[in-house]
Design a protein around this nucleic acid. Structure first.
Length: 252
DNA sequence: AGCCAGGGTCTGC
DNA sequence: GCAGACCATGGC
């Protein structure tokens, strides 16, 4: 649970706490069972099943990946991965913040963003602020986030989305390439950030974010290019490859 | 001290 | 098109 979302923290008992879709959740995995604490059944059915993509058929995707030597190793070593269905604006904003940044600091900036501009929930938790709320801010208002040069990008994203200059409501039904171009109208969003937002915030499983780690994977294992066979689920494959190459290095 | 962090922009060929 | 400086901040 690391790399595609930044708002979940693991407690001493191993369970994870976080906020999504305006709700606080504590969840734990015990062997093959997920335990949702204090969760109304409606929230589970209408939100968390979707959010954790519990109905997604990852077995059949993994079965397809077996035909590729590297992907086969990656799926075997990494184990279970799911593409979270995060809120579109939150994904866009989070991956703008992620650029040229490290995970602990990304979490810190997002934490301060929510505390400063989100709505309070229980347990000192806060919702992710809306684009409309951030669009009302000035650059100085965002200074306490200590987001550095990314602050102006956050502001531009909030303003363009709030004003519908960039319409994210209908983006999910566009082709990934079209949606990518649309998101790149925002300052600070290039191909990689756009693909991350599309994969994790719009459930575009064919989006294939290329960061420094994936570049290393492509260079090492796919010098002739990434096979076209997995195009439909390239983003899922990307997650396995990402975690595979990361666990081979000394990492966080 | 200096390098790096799940990149992108801006400038100059 | 493509390379290279530069961008804020914090951890190591």
């Amino acid at each position: 649970m690391c790399g595609q979302c930044f708002r979940w923290v693991q407690g001493e008992d191993g369970s994870f706490s976080g906020v999504a879709y305006g709700r606080f959740l504590r969840v734990a995995q015990m062997d093959n069972t997920l335990v949702f604490y204090n969760t109304p059944i409606n929230d589970f059915n209408e939100i968390w099943v979707e959010y954790f993509d519990l109905n997604g058929d990852y077995d059949s995707m993994k079965a397809q990946f077996c035909s590729d030597e590297t992907l086969n190793m990656a799926t075997k070593q990494v184990g279970g991965i799911r593409i979270l269905k995060q809120e579109p604006w939150e994904a866009i904003c989070s991956f703008i913040i992620s650029q040229n940044n490290n995970i602990p600091r990304i979490k810190g900036i997002i934490d301060r963003l929510c505390k400063e501009f989100g709505q309070p929930l229980e347990n000192e938790e806060y919702t992710f602020p809306t684009a409309d709320r951030i669009a009302q801010c000035s650059l100085e208002d965002l200074a306490p986030l200590r987001a550095g040069f990314r602050a102006k990008y956050i502001l531009d994203a909030a303003q363009k989305i709030s004003s519908k200059e960039v319409s994210i409501d209908t983006l999910w039904q566009e082709d990934t390439a079209v949606a990518q171009k649309e998101l790149m109208k925002i300052k600070g969003i290039g191909p990689k950030v756009a693909d991350c937002a599309l994969l994790f915030g719009f459930y575009k499983l064919d989006a294939f974010p290329i960061d420094v780690w994936i570049k290393k994977v492509l260079k090492t294992y796919y010098p002739d290019g990434f096979p076209n066979d997995y195009k439909q689920y390239a983003g899922v494959a990307q997650q396995y490859l990402f975690h595979y190459i990361r666990t081979q290095q000394l990492s966080y």
